[in-house]
Each structure stands twice: as structure tokens, then as C-alpha cells.
Computed example of a mutant assay.
Amino acid sequence: MSNSMLQILVLAAIAVFLILRLRNVLGTREGFEPPRQPTPLSRPTLRTVTAEPESDILDHVEAGTPEAEALAAMHRVEPQFAVGPFLSGAKQAYEMILTGFERGEIEEIRPFLSPAVAEAFDAVIADRTARGITTQMQYLGTRETAVQGASFDPATGVATVSVRFVGELIAAHRDASGEVIEGDPKAARKQRDIWTFERRMGQDDPNWQLVATA
């Protein structure tokens, strides 16, 4: 027997040995087995979807309160309404309106003010101007934004939401001579406000108006 033939027989014997060992370790498959599919992600149930508006409301007000009922009524009239995004928008409006008022620049924010609030702001700004009062103001941020109250009139569709804000700012008013008559230009202070916003639900205009401050 030649050396080449002997080498082939040895290699074949080794191959048979390895195949038998693999069969013993891994086992065999017989018959048809469909390819394994990845486990699908669970699909949201109807209950999960319908619970979202309630969860959004109860994240901000107590269940069973007039505020919770009013916010739920708003959502029924306008399904895209949600408390969380509303409060985010209210926070931005608070910062923008407060800064504009303190600086005496309200033309850009006037569309967000009811006529009564705009008139009151104009009167304060005119009085400051007549007395030569100037304002130094730096807004540092809003530390708290929370629902204080809510109501809904189903007859008119008018929704009203009062929001509690706690802002932090540096503000000082100076008279015509430059003397500080109110505030401190070097110290931050907290300002607590309750602002009431109003809007007719179901209308094309998505903007809420500031109708009262306290």
C-alpha cells in the first residue's frame, strides 16, 4: 500500500471519528423543522392606549377632583390635548411674558394676553415710563410648574386652567437718578405666581391666552 493511500485512510478515519463525536454531543434533527423566528414584541392593548389620557391627567391632579374631571372633559372635546405638554407650553409662556413685562416690551407677547391683562400691563409700563423708572432683569429659570385649578364649560367649550409657577430671577427697578427703588441687582429672588389661561376647545387656534394673574 502506498504512502499516499495510507494517509487518505488515516484522514478518513479521523473524519468519521469527529462526526460521531459531534453527533453524540449535539444530537441530530430528523424530519422538517421550521426556521426559528425571533420572539415578536408584545403589541399594545386597547386598554393601554385608552389609559394614557387618564395617566397623563393623574400625573398632575388627584383622581376624582373637579380639576381631574375638567381636564378629562377637555380631552374628550379635543383628544390631542394633554396636561404634560400644556404645562410645558405654559412654562415657556410664563418665562416669555414675565421677561417681556419686566422689560416693558410686550408687543411680541400681546397675542398671548387677554385684552384685560394687556391693558393692565400697558398701564404699569406707562406709569414706569412716566416716572423714569428702568428695569434691570435676568431670568434664571422656572423651578416649579403645577396645575392649581381647572374648569370646563361644556356649553361654551371654554377651558380654564390655573397654573402655579415658582420662578427665580434677578430684578431691580431704578428711578430717573439711577437709584434702586425696588429689588436687588445682585441677588436672586424667587417669584411665586398663579396665572390663569383660557381657550375655547375644538378651535383651530391652538394658543391659550393669559386671562388673570395673582
Rank of each mutant, 00 (worst) to 15 (best):
G178D: 02
Q80N: 06
S88N: 11
F32G: 03
L6F: 09
A123P: 07
A159K: 07
K190S: 12
T65R: 06
F81N: 03
A13C: 11
V166F: 06
E67A: 15
G100A: 05
I8C: 11
Q148K: 13
T129I: 01
F197E: 01
G149N: 11
S4K: 11
D59H: 10
M201T: 03
P44V: 14
S55L: 12
R199Y: 09
M96G: 04
G141A: 10
Q148A: 13
L18D: 11
D193H: 12
I106Q: 00
L87Q: 00
G104I: 10
V180Y: 08
I133C: 03
V166P: 02
R200D: 07
A176M: 00
I133W: 04
A51E: 11
R189D: 00
A73G: 09
F121E: 05
P79F: 02
P38E: 05
A176T: 03
L9M: 15
R128V: 07
S2Y: 00
E182Q: 14
D205Q: 01
M96V: 13
Y94F: 15
L58F: 12
L87S: 01
I170W: 01
H173V: 02
A51D: 12
I57W: 00
Q138E: 14
A93Q: 10
Q148H: 11
Y139H: 15
Q7A: 13
Q37V: 13
K190Q: 14
L22G: 08
T145S: 03
G100Y: 00
Q191N: 13
A176E: 11
M5D: 15
T160D: 11
T99M: 10
A82W: 05
L58M: 12
L18P: 04
F197N: 03
S55G: 10
L113V: 07
E144I: 07
Q7P: 00
D127I: 05
I181Q: 10
